[in-house]
Design a protein around this nucleic acid. Structure first.
Ligand code: DCP
Ligand code: MG
Length: 1184
DNA sequence: ATCCTCCCCTAC
DNA sequence: TAAGGTAGGGGAGGAT
């Protein structure tokens, strides 16, 4: 109600006064889009939950598919199938050791990675018994089990009963499958009373030994080899011997396990019943041999296992002083070493035979040269660490997420500031509203009270980005990964993203390329990573979303949640555009769904900006929206309404729920006997809390009912900063390990400095090869099956202060490493995490002021605090960075950039671009008056830099983009060359060298040509050539194009469009109840320009109404306020330029008429006011 | 109860 | 050959 108003503008809103930027503009704009550009695609906005296309493939995860697979399996298994009671009928086939089974698992901290690490990408596996881990591959379980090819397998295990225990390799699930497929039976629980069966286990501890004494305990190798040979081999060759109490290795070995067991058991009488039931059932089976001597002393046929009964962390580095990289035999090596030819059902052999060390890797590792280049043995000396992170997709995903959260927070804050502290921008949009509403982010719903949460997610993001420049690959199965997999037979390169065509054949994100090849064949195409592209598209994506969001939460680089309640409400309030495309036979359509219409509009916008498809799930809370997205994919929208929630959820498996993974699913299954949502409804909340803990229990219970009260979370301060490397870690001695740890500490220190944080607690995380794991894991240079060790210690300055000193961190980390006393040869991963951060206020801001109000404060804290022009001189900042430019950036980035420069200076590198005054601006515009930093100059720094950026839409122009892309160029030596071009020249053309360097050479050439052309164009007094065309363009792009900051009009309109000569003539009726999304302020410029256009057009042949002119003038002047930041100046200039264009078009020869003169007078008045204000606040007049 | 420490788990 | 990172929620169990 009490929205701060601009100046004296009136509250009332006479019809004559142009309703500047009312929410209905959205509707208007939308109408245009649909009728105009939107005609291209078969956009049929209404009809909620209508997908544009039916699911092209049955997703393995869909309940339906699962059911079918189950049925197949049941048929396949025949009589020897799993006993009925083991799971309630129709549920998943998960085979997990029963929690009630005291011997279920013993592994302490083992970190198991499946064979090629693919079988279970180490994330699918989880802890089963409390802190223990039983890693089981479940990802492809259903599919694999349902494999019809298995029908022909020899039934070598017929009538035999097995129990699988511990962390087997391959995973329990794989072994189980092999047994089941060959007629055997696998028991989920070990019966204490005399059932005869074999126990398959990788190792035997003292404790286990006692319990297993009456069974035949055999290594996995027996099963593997028997399967391979197609006959039952003599089990004694794989008889398992006792290994000492390795359980002591972990922090909490068996103790915790055994201690907790009875309790758990007591809790669940029901389970006990089940067990007994099962016992009976099992009894009848083979009742024969029950020998299995007590003293199993490894009879081992194959190479006697080297099984070092490593009670502790033995330090056998001395044990093999010779060639640590010689491929040692695995403890139990199947006699048949060769083989790996994957075929059909046996495809799994590819990773079944994983007890063997990866000979390829082992061979390569013997080569000193090769090791230097491909492992971390020299730390970062050879650039390994840097190169690693540069190429790590997961590293990038993580980094981007953090960065995006900061950016979103900044945008939110600016939006609020604009709305409150600096009322101008919002005034423009709200003044005309008689009942203006404070843009509180709480977004009080006006209309129905219904909240609309949109979950927006790119379809196969990396692939989609890659296809942008490879249209010829569209429609084909393709994946993004490092390897081209050209000749390599079984590449272990991981697939980051698979196209939907590839998914149709079973390929999944995270799968190895080799495996994908077996699924798809030669047709599978690989696309290289393009990290810059992803970032760019992501920014375009976020920028579009901001235009619709009351709230925005960054989920990942390709995914976000928005509260679009206001946008939907506005749409509902302006339904008339339904008649746009008359051709549409939308007569019988259901009542239109404004949410879906908005979603389609968002999809259109994003498609325009990026050429990529996104899918959108809509519902009233986060949980449901995410689920809806799954239904929406690919390339669709799904609105999950309240009425259909029960139906929608009932058939789902809890594992389908976001934030419910393997571990939670397992606990639920164990407790309730099912994981199907519908079947779990009957259980009380308390039961869930009991099994899962209070929070998690409550959460799951709520999810089952579609309840989720989480809010879109704002960015919070970081609580930890870490870096780890669990790839390519192969040391030969302590020194190498220590160097690596030290360098990793430096990496962490660097990351801390980047955000100006310091920490007090350092935690070292080490992964060490599990004693039972092969020396070289199947995954090339991967970490394989490991145990992990954490150790932390306080660091910091004497007084207990926090630190970010690489030396201190390095020394401390190395100290911790030594404390652990691990064999360096066995290390497979290292990580360093800093917590107890202070960073924020304290010392951190010492030299640059507090964080609250970045722009003004940082400015005043700079050397030239006075408001004079000198402050804006290029070299004014000690950093060589224009203070205003800096000030306009998010504070974190300000810090980051400063830190970057400080670091670089310290390193005494070649002059950094930003440091060198002549090169300081990314775009040293020739026409910028030398010696004085005009606003125009500032603008230049924010100009688009490359053609490819333009491709992603003008979004690239946003200050935020520059910010995100930050000082990268600053690290380049201006005299260095990229391809055929000097970095310096690139900068003069406004091309970001970093981006440029990643382009293929032919595209580089193209970019250069284009930019040179544009530069010439700029030099030649720029004047809009074809304004009408441009205007049409602008309108077409509308808010989607959250930019418009570019000077170069021509470049603003990437593609042609019909001459949209007809501007919207009549401002839509203002509806008091509709609101404009609060966040729109962050990307308001296009709307403002649009508004201005409408303003002019709306007057018909008349001159401007003074009331409106005043509003606009005040708005423009307000934009110059320091608090608004650089974007304000930029925006004001754009507005003036735009108005000039409009007037030029409409009132060509000015004094043509009285009205024309009035308009031009008004324009000059605006210019004068703005320029004056600019001079006052920025120290220089503006130039157009 | 509530906090703290040390993990596990989840997601992309 | 390949680049299996990382932040943050929260549970378990001990200290207060
Ligand atoms: N194991 C994974 C999963 C994802 N990603 C990257 C590549 C993906 O393109 C991007 C987004 O992940 P999504 O889960 O959204 O998957 P996609 O976008 O590829 O497919 P879709 O969203 O259509 O299911 O993250 C990755 O590198 N490794
Ligand atoms: Mg996606």
């Amino acid at each position: 109600m009490s929205r701060p108003n601009l100046g004296k503008s009136s509250q009332d809103d006479p019809p004559s006064s142009f309703p500047v930027s009312s929410p209905t503009f959205w509707a208007e704009a939308a109408k245009l889009d649909i009728g105009d550009g939107g005609a291209g695609h078969n956009g049929q906005p209404s009809a909620k939950r209508r997908r544009l296309s039916p699911p092209p493939l049955s997703l393995p995860r869909s309940p339906l598919a699962r059911m079918e697979q189950l049925e197949e399996l049941a048929a396949l298994q025949g009589p020897s199938g799993i006993p009925e009671r083991e799971r309630s009928p129709g549920t998943t086939l998960s085979y997990l050791p029963n929690r009630a089974d005291p011997f279920a698992d013993l592994s302490s901290h083992s970190y198991l990675a499946g064979a090629e690490y693919a079988p279970n990408k180490f994330g699918d596996i989880g802890d089963y018994m409390r802190k223990k881990e039983i890693k089981v591959q479940t990802q492809n379980r259903d599919i694999a089990l349902a494999d019809p090819a298995a029908a022909n397998l020899p039934q070598i295990f017929k009538d035999l009963s097995f129990y699988i225990n511990g962390n087997t390799h391959p995973p329990m699930e794989e072994i189980r499958k092999m047994i089941l497929q060959r007629g055997g039976e696998v028991r989920p629980v070990l019966r204490s009373k005399g059932m005869v069966k074999y126990i398959i286990a990788p190792m035997l501890t003292q404790m286990k030994f006692k319990q297993f004494v009456n069974y035949k305990v055999v290594r996995e190798g027996w099963i593997l080899e028997s399967c391979k040979e197609g006959k039952l081999l003599d089990w004694t060759r794989w008889k398992l011997a006792v290994q000492g109490g390795w359980e002591e290795e972990g922090r909490k070995g068996l103790e915790g396990f055994f201690k907790g067991e009875p309790t758990q058991r007591a809790k669940r009488e029901r389970e006990e019943e089940e067990e007994e039931e099962e016992e009976e059932e099992v009894e009848e089976r083979s009742a024969k041999q029950v020998d299995m001597p007590g003293s199993t002393k490894v009879t081992s046929p194959p190479p006697a296992p080297v099984v070092s009964s490593s009670t502790k962390l033995a330090t056998p580095s001395k044990l093999q002083p010779v060639d640590p990289f010689a491929s040692r035999q695995s403890p139990v090596k199947p006699p048949t070493p060769k083989k790996e030819t994957p075929k059909r059902a046996e495809t799994q052999w590819e990773f079944y035979a994983s007890k063997e060390s990866n000979e390829d890797a082992a061979r390569l590792l013997k080569d000193q040269e090769w090791r230097l280049k491909n492992t971390a043995e020299r730390g970062n000396e050879g650039g390994f660490i840097d190169g690693y992170y540069q190429n790590s997709r997961l590293h990038h995903l993580s980094t981007w997420k953090t960065e995006l959260r900061v950016l979103v927070a900044t945008a939110q804050r600016q939006s609020e500031e604009n709305s409150l502290a600096a009322p101008a921008p919002t005034t423009l949009s709200h003044l005309s509203l008689s009942t203006s509403v404070l843009p509180t982010r709480a977004a009080p719903v006006v209309g129905t009270g219904q909240k609309y949460i949109f979950h927006v997610d790119f379809d196969c993001f990396f692939v989609s980005c890659g296809l942008a420049t490879r249209p010829h690959l569209c429609g084909k199965p393709s994946v993004v990964c490092h390897s081209t997999g050209g000749r390599m037979e079984g590449s272990t390169s991981e697939i980051a993203s698979a196209s939907y065509e590839a998914r149709a054949k079973g390929v999944k994100n995270g799968m190895s390329l080799g495996r994908a090849r077996t699924l798809v064949g030669e047709d599978l195409l690989t696309i290289p990573y393009e990290f810059e592209t992803y970032k760019k598209y992501s920014l375009a994506f976020y920028t579009v979303l901001m235009g619709y969001a009351d709230e925005l939460q960054a989920v990942s680089v390709d995914e976000a949640l928005i509260d679009a309640t206001s946008a939907v409400a506005a749409r509902e309030a302006a339904p008339e555009e339904a008649d746009e495309d008359g051709a549409e036979k939308r007569i019988p359509k259901r009542p239109r769904d404004a949410a879906v219409e908005i979603a389609q509009k968002i999809r259109d916008d994003i498609r325009k900006e990026t050429g990529c498809e996104v899918s959108i799930g809509i519902s009233h809370n986060v949980f449901l929206s995410k689920l809806a997205t799954r239904r929406a994919k690919p390339a669709g929208v799904y609105h999950l309404t309240t009425a259909e929630i029960p139906t929608f959820l009932a058939p789902l498996d809890v594992e389908d729920f976001p934030s419910v993974g393997y571990s939670i699913k397992s606990k639920i299954e164990e407790k309730f006997g099912t994981t199907i949502a519908g079947e779990l409804m009957e259980h009380p909340k308390g039961a869930f809390r009991g099994v899962l803990g209070p929070k998690t229990g409550e959460m799951v219970w709520g999810y089952l009912r579609g309840m989720d009260d989480r809010k879109l979370e704002p960015h919070k301060e970081r609580k930890s900063i870490s870096a780890e490397m669990n790839y390519g870690i192969r040391f030969r001695n302590d020194e190498q390990a220590e160097i690596c740890v030290r360098d990793l500490a430096a990496e962490v220190a660097k990351r801390m400095k980047q955000v100006n944080a310091k920490g007090r607690l350092l935690t070292l995380k080490i992964m060490k090869r599990h004693p039972e794991a092969p020396i070289e894991p199947p995954k090339f240079l991967g970490h394989g099956w490991c145990e992990t060790f954490n150790k932390s210690s306080s660091v910091g300055t004497k007084g207990g202060g926090s630190t970010d000193d690489p030396e201190i961190l390095g020394v401390e980390a190395v100290k911790l490493l030594r404390t652990l006393g691990l064999d360096p040869v066995e290390l497979r991963g290292v990580g360093i995490q800093m917590t107890k951060l202070d960073g924020e206020k304290a010392e951190r801001e010492a030299g640059q002021g507090a964080e609250r109000e970045p722009p003004p404060i940082s400015r005043s804290a700079l050397p030239n605090a006075s408001a004079g022009p000198s402050r804006l001189a290029p070299a004014a900042s000690s950093d060589g960075i224009d203070p205003d430019f800096l000030a306009a950036l998010p504070e974190d980035l300000q810090r980051e950039i400063r830190a970057e420069h400080a670091r670089a200076r310290a390193a005494k590198k070649a002059p950094l671009i930003p440091v060198k005054p002549t090169l300081a601006p990314a775009k040293p515009l020739p026409r910028a008056a030398p010696g004085r930093h005009s606003a125009a100059h500032i603008s230049k720094q924010l100009r688009p830099k490359t053609k490819t950026q333009m491709k992603a839409g003008q979004i690239a122009d946003l200050a935020l983009y520059s910010a995100w892309n930050k000082a990268k160029a600053g690290e380049l030596d201006p005299t260095s060359k990229i391809g055929l071009y000097f970095v310096k020249d690139l900068c003069e053309l406004g091309i970001d060298p970093t981006v440029f360097s990643e382009l293929p050479s032919d595209m580089q050439k193209e970019v250069i040509t284009e930019e040179r052309r544009k530069q010439r164009q700029r030099l030649a007094l720029h004047r809009p050539a074809d304004t009408s065309r441009i205007r049409a363009k602008e309108r077409e792009a509308d808010k989607s194009k959250g930019l418009g900051l570019g000077f170069d009009r021509a470049s603003t309109s990437p593609r042609g469009s019909r001459a949209g000569s007809l501007p919207v003539t009549r401002p839509a009726v203002v509806r008091p109840e509709s609101r404009r999304p609060a966040m729109l302020n962050a990307t308001k410029l296009p709307d403002v320009l649009d508004t201005i256009t409408k303003w002019v057009d709306s007057r018909g042949g008349k001159g401007p109404a003074e009331r409106d002119a005043k509003k606009v003038e005040a708005y423009l002047v307000k934009l110059m306020e320091p608090g608004v930041g650089l974007g304000g100046v930029e925006a004001a200039i754009e507005c003036l330029k735009w108005l000039k264009v409009i007037l030029g078009e409409r009132w060509k020869d000015e004094a043509d008429r009285k009205a024309g003169k009035e308009w031009w007078d008004t324009w000059r008045r605006f210019l004068g006011s703005v320029s004056k204000r600019c001079e006052e606040t920025m120290g220089a007049p503006i130039r157009l």
